[in-house]
Nucleic acid binder design. Structure first.
Lengths: 120, 120
DNA sequence: TTGCATTTACGAATTCTTTCGTAGATTTGA
DNA sequence: TCAAATCTACGAAAGAATTCGTAAATGCAA
């Protein structure tokens, strides 16, 4: 049900690009030390689990994500809030905002979002 | 280096309580279907990995977390931002805020925090 | 056409994580 | 004191997740 870490990386590519062959995913991931057939195998397993669908009409199969991006992200997020932040969303958020990687633009986006939340 | 999920649950308890025997952790976790010796073994492994230290001067050993809470949380957070949110902190934050589990109090906390960030 | 490159399928090995049984030591209290 | 309870150590099994080698099919290009 819940994707593994490797599966998540693959889903990431599929969500971004929409449709991909194994090779496209393999190249997008660009992992050293991981061979082509490893990615292939993972995607076959994901197909068995029905996390992805595929079009096998031509030799090169074309894969598409078959689970919802937002729902899946939320699943990870909630798990993380529980096991890493002891259930506190605000602590996660504040740490995320405080970790220097956040640009001014991103912070502005979040302010807008908070204001929206407020007026509702 | 990076704690596993089970290890994270144990660390959670140790960070909260400071110092614990195996039994205390076992009881705090309160997991059905997981025996005492399982937690013991995990904590012994964590000791080997130097994630925890322990005082063995009495029969019941007392464990203490030996890795930094904020640093470890950040490690998970950054990994998550990368593999689940494609590198976008603001998307993670907005999804966290949007998932209903956030109370008004928490939202206010975050606003204060953003204002602080701003004035710096 | 024919052989080279690409692709799939699949089994199996490897590695990582979690689980627990059992044995032996220590403590406690009846 | 000594039996019951509690604890540690440790090996090993079970279960997940990842990895890849190899064989067979397919398509492409000379």
């Amino acid at each position: 049900m819940k994707p593994t870490e490797s599966e998540m990386e693959i889903l990431q590519v599929l969500w971004n690009k929409g449709q991909c062959s194994v090779r496209e995913v393999f190249e997008a991931l660009n992992k050293k030390d991981v061979g082509y057939t490893t990615i292939l195998k993972l995607m076959q397993i994901m197909h068995e689990k029905e996390m992805v669908t595929r079009d096998t009409s031509s030799k090169t199969h074309i894969y598409t994500a078959n689970i919802n991006k937002e729902k899946t992200q939320n699943q990870f997020l909630n798990k993380m809030i529980d096991t890493v932040y002891n259930g506190s969303t605000s602590r996660l958020v504040m740490q995320a905002l405080g970790n220097h990687k956040t640009s001014k633009e991103e912070i502005d986006l979040i302010k807008d979002y908070l204001n929206q939340l407020e007026t509702k």
